[in-house]
C-alpha cells in the first residue's frame, strides 16, 4: 500500500471498551514518536485513529462485551497505515450529513468521519461499512 517498507506492525483484537481502545492508541503514539513522528503529522494520526476506534467501539459494536475490534497498524519513518474493523452492521460514510453546513454546525453527527477524511492521505471503507483503512504520509519526512 505505501511506498515504504513497514518497520513496525501490530495486529490485535481488542475488547469493545474505551479503556482498551485508548491503551492501544497510547502504545501506537509512543511507537510513532520512536520513529520520529511529531507535531502536526502525529496529531493528525492520533485524531484519525481516535475517531475510528471510538466509532468502532461505540457506534459499531455498541460497547458489547461479546464483540471485539480488529486493529492492524503499520509504522515506518515515512508513513503509517491503520485498519480498524468492528463487528457491527456497518454504515455508509457518504450518507452522513455534512457537519460543516450551517444547519449542521451544532449537530453531533459526522464530524469524526469528516476529520478522518481531511487529515489522512487515503481513506477507504469496505462495502459493508464496518472497516476503515487509512494511510498517512509524513509531510516532513527528512528525519
Amino acid at each position: 500500500m505505501a511506498d515504504t517498507a513497514w518497520e513496525w506492525s501490530l495486529h490485535e483484537h481488542i475488547p469493545s471498551s474505551s479503556v482498551s481502545g485508548h491503551e492501544l492508541i497510547e502504545r501506537y503514539i509512543r511507537v510513532l514518536e520512536q520513529f520520529g513522528w511529531d507535531g502536526r503529522d502525529l496529531f493528525h494520526v492520533q485524531l484519525a485513529v481516535e475517531e475510528a476506534i471510538v466509532n468502532a467501539i461505540t457506534h459499531g459494536n455498541h460497547e458489547s462485551p461479546d464483540k471485539t475490534v480488529e486493529v492492524e497498524l503499520h509504522v515506518s519513518r515515512l508513513a503509517t497505515s491503520m485498519r480498524i474493523q468492528d463487528q457491527g452492521a456497518g454504515f455508509c460514510p457518504d450518507a452522513l450529513p455534512d457537519p460543516t453546513e450551517d444547519e449542521n454546525l451544532e449537530s453531533p453527527h459526522g464530524r469524526g468521519v469528516m476529520l478522518i477524511k481531511q487529515m489522512m492521505d487515503k481513506v477507504d471503507y469496505n462495502a459493508r461499512g464496518n472497516q476503515v483503512t487509512m494511510l498517512k504520509r509524513r509531510s516532513e519526512s527528512a528525519g
Binding site: Q46, E50, E51, V54, E106, P108, R111, G112, L115
Partner: peptide, 11 residues
C-alpha cells in the same frame, strides 16, 4: 489533544 466527542461537549 481533543477529538470530536470533546467538540460535541463544547457545543
Amino acid at each position: 489533544f481533543l477529538g470530536s466527542a470533546a467538540l460535541n461537549k463544547l457545543i
